[in-house]
Amino acid sequence: MTRPRIALFDYGSGNLRSAHRALERAGADVDLTSDLDLARAADGLFVPGVGAYAACMEGVLKTGLDAVIRERVGDDRPVLGVCVGDQILFEEGVEHGVTTRGVGVLEGRVDLLEAPRIPHMGWNTVAADEGMRLFAGIDPAERFYFVHSYAAKAVPPGAKAAVAVHGEPFLAAVERGPVAATQFHPEKSGDAGYALLSNWIKGLK
């Protein structure tokens, strides 16, 4: 049986090695690449990201990844964003009073969490909407690994979402059509993250 092929896009940000291993373990063949044609042609596009929103968007724009993400979404072809790779899929991010425009395939804004302790670092449970493909067969008591200070908080129109709480509720994961995104790191979330990545890979066309 042919394994789906995933483009793990290197635009200068992300936990590429751990993501590569996790995706292969979950059942995919993986191309670590900065080639836009490979990103277009892959069965799934994985968008990583760590650090600052503005710095990640600079890398996305410099490589032209933003256009490929929009193209894939317009063609109903799967994209998965993780951590800041999740955040940049939204319309904008606000850090230190500076607003940066995102890729914009999900409506909404990424903003600082209102919490007594920042960053939100460690394991947390999530409450997922019924029918989310990412969480199929995953026990609601499972925990996922988070490292972030910013997050989207409002569910985009027509999307399903999983919510976590750290000081306030925020979007731990979103899926709508070909777009899936997680604020947590599935590649660092043990068996629960493996199950989630397996669910995404099983849904690739």
Rank of each mutant, 00 (worst) to 15 (best):
A7D: 03
F9Q: 03
D10A: 07
Y11N: 09
Y11F: 14
S13C: 12
A19Y: 09
A19D: 03
D29F: 11
D31W: 10
D31I: 15
L32G: 10
T33M: 05
T33K: 08
D35N: 15
L36P: 15
L36A: 13
R40D: 14
A54V: 06
V60W: 10
A67G: 04
V68R: 13
R70L: 15
E71G: 07
V73P: 01
G74C: 03
P78T: 05
L80H: 13
L80M: 11
G81P: 01
G81A: 02
C83L: 00
D86Y: 07
D86C: 04
L89K: 03
E91W: 03
G93N: 06
E95T: 01
G97F: 01
V98L: 08
V98A: 12
L106A: 04
R109M: 05
D111N: 14
E114W: 07
A115N: 12
P116F: 12
I118Y: 12
W123L: 11
E130P: 04
G131W: 06
A136M: 09
D139P: 01
A141F: 05
F144L: 02
V147H: 04
V147W: 00
S149P: 04
K153D: 05
P156M: 06
G158L: 06
A164I: 09
V165C: 11
E168R: 10
F170I: 12
F170M: 14
P178Q: 13
V179F: 11
V179T: 15
T182W: 04
G190W: 12
A195Q: 08
L196V: 06
S198M: 00
S198L: 00
N199A: 05
G203W: 00
G203L: 02
